[in-house]
Amino acid sequence: MTARIDHLVTSGTFALDGGEWDVDNNVWIIGDDTEAVVVDAAHDAAAIEAALDGRTLRAIICTHAHNDHIDAAPALADATGAPILLHPDDLPLWRQTHPDRTPDAELADGQELEVAGVRLTVLHTPGHAPGAVCLHAPRLNTVFTGDTLFQGGPGATGRSFSDFPTIVDSIRDRLLSLPPDTVVRTGHGDSTTVGAEAPHLQEWITRGH
């Protein structure tokens, strides 16, 4: 069966450093008709489970541990039996949202996950959060960037646990090296491509050092 990417938008609240903002999150489901993984279980476990449509969920992959990307992860894990995967550097953020539930396994730079014949390579891309990761799927010509890279530039770095020079280094070293036609599927908003973002990012790289 042919692997595909399904896209769901869920809505909720992002909370950090005492502030709250209404947000729409992209939830990405990669798989075929029998199995799948979810990238960022945001806000609505029931809606994500419905979108799985009976497929076996192999893993819930967290690009980082801001609450709006992980708030539905435990409920989805409980409903499906799938493990939650998170880079350990984001455990302090995770505990702000889920103090009584830890992730089931760690993500590591260079780790390869496979579902429906598609290999996802974990790229550790700190900056927006210490344990932020992107997932590169060459066969699907896609990289899932969470909040590291958006259409229009890097993710926000003005709050706790974030750092602008670090995110610029991550994007330059880990993402701009991907083929220019690689589709960038983001944590919020519209998709873009590596090639479309590269010229703007060079400006930010210069400004950030």
Rank of each mutant, 00 (worst) to 15 (best):
L91P: 00
V37W: 09
E112T: 12
D89F: 12
V9K: 10
I70D: 01
R58N: 09
A108Y: 07
G18N: 01
S170E: 13
A77M: 06
D33Y: 01
I205R: 06
A41G: 03
A36G: 02
L113P: 12
W21D: 08
V115D: 02
R174T: 04
L8G: 01
D109A: 06
P126R: 01
A132V: 07
V115E: 08
P99Q: 11
N26I: 00
E49D: 12
T182I: 15
A51V: 07
I60Q: 05
A82M: 08
L123F: 06
A59K: 13
R101W: 10
G19T: 15
E106Y: 12
H64L: 14
G152E: 12
P130S: 07
P138W: 01
T63D: 08
T145G: 15
T125I: 11
D6T: 12
F144K: 02
L178D: 06
I171P: 02
V194S: 08
S162D: 00
N67S: 06
T34P: 09
G158L: 14
L176C: 09
P92G: 04
G117H: 05
T182Q: 03
A75N: 03
Q96V: 11
I60C: 11
T145R: 04
G187N: 10
V27R: 06
I5F: 04
A50P: 00
V115N: 04
V9T: 09
L175W: 00
